[in-house]
């Protein structure tokens, strides 16, 4: 069974999904960070494939991607790093990136490689559901890989139903109309949106991301969905750390989020 499916079968609340960019802050820190997040009790790890032109990401994740690319990060290396850490770590792993990266690797080859190294699902914000449904859906099903589509406060009801039908694993709920890394507390308007979506009684579980920076925000979104996704705030933590200091700092940070 796919690890993401198993996770949501076993746990329905307070699921903590943490994002970081592969190859950041160091070329070979990817495995160390995944292992540390797993050990600290994170439920899901989302690994970003650094990209030259990340349209849906804010400055923090953009910059981490630039550093990672400068460090020499490449997809072939990332797959090796994941295969290695997979030997000792069972936490579900999701790769997040842009569809051009998948296209250039070869779509089918990319998905097979994910399966081979132990990636459980993908988030590709610029892959439209139309393209997915008509060209790639069968491959995801066939390889038992997850795919998470995004919904935003502007998504209409019919669109959300369609996304619910096509999603495999969990729906990525964008908390706010913003690229990642925005800050500030959760507003009444956002809460109304969380409630609206919760009231739709969707088949797929939901995780809420974008602008979730601390324990309070995580607790809030967890009350309206299965849990939350933290990215930019975690990247900011990693930024100042030496390679040796990563595991302890990550453990400390995860505990602070769990509260």
């Amino acid at each position: 069974m796919n690890r993401i499916t198993r996770l949501f079968a076993e746990k329905q609340t307070n699921i903590l999904n943490v994002y970081f960019t592969a190859g950041y802050p160091y070329l070979n820190s990817t495995g160390t960070i995944i292992a540390a997040l797993d050990k600290a009790g994170v439920d899901l790890v989302e690994v970003g494939m650094p990209y030259s032109d990340p349209l849906a990401d804010g400055p923090t994740i953009q910059e981490s991607g630039q550093v990672a690319l400068k460090n020499g990060m490449q997809l072939s290396l990332l797959f090796d790093q994941i295969a290695e850490v997979r030997k000792t770590v069972e936490v579900p792993l999701v790769l997040m990136g842009y569809f051009n990266q998948v296209m250039q690797f070869g779509e089918r080859k990319f998905l097979e490689k994910c399966k081979e190294v132990g990636v459980d699902g993908l988030i590709l914000p610029d892959l439209p559901i139309y393209e997915y449904e008509h060209f790639y859906k069968d491959w995801f099903e066939d390889l038992d890989l997850g795919i998470s589509f995004l919904i935003s406060p502007q998504s209409g009801t019919e669109r959300i139903r369609k996304i619910d039908e096509l999603t495999r694993g969990f729906i990525y709920m964008v908390a706010d109309a913003a690229v990642t890394g925005a800050t500030g507390g959760i507003t009444e308007i956002q809460l109304a949106y969380f409630q609206r979506i919760r009231g739709m009684d969707l088949k797929q579980p939901r995780l809420i991301g974008f602008g979730i920076t601390d324990s309070a925000a995580f607790q809030t979104v967890s009350a309206y969905a299965s849990g939350g996704i933290i990215g930019s705030a975690f990247i900011r933590l990693l930024g100042g750390l030496s390679e040796a200091a990563l595991p302890e700092a990550i453990d400390h940070w995860v505990k602070s989020i769990r509260g």
Binding site: L55, A56, P125, P128, L150, S152, Q154, S155, G156, R159
Partner: peptide
């Protein structure tokens, strides 16, 4: 209908832009 000239075109955009 999907915005293609032959095999080129389409709309590869994040969901946040879809309504616009």
């Amino acid at each position: 209908e999907q915005g293609y000239y032959g095999e080129f075109g389409g709309a590869f955009i994040p969901e946040m832009l879809y309504p616009n």
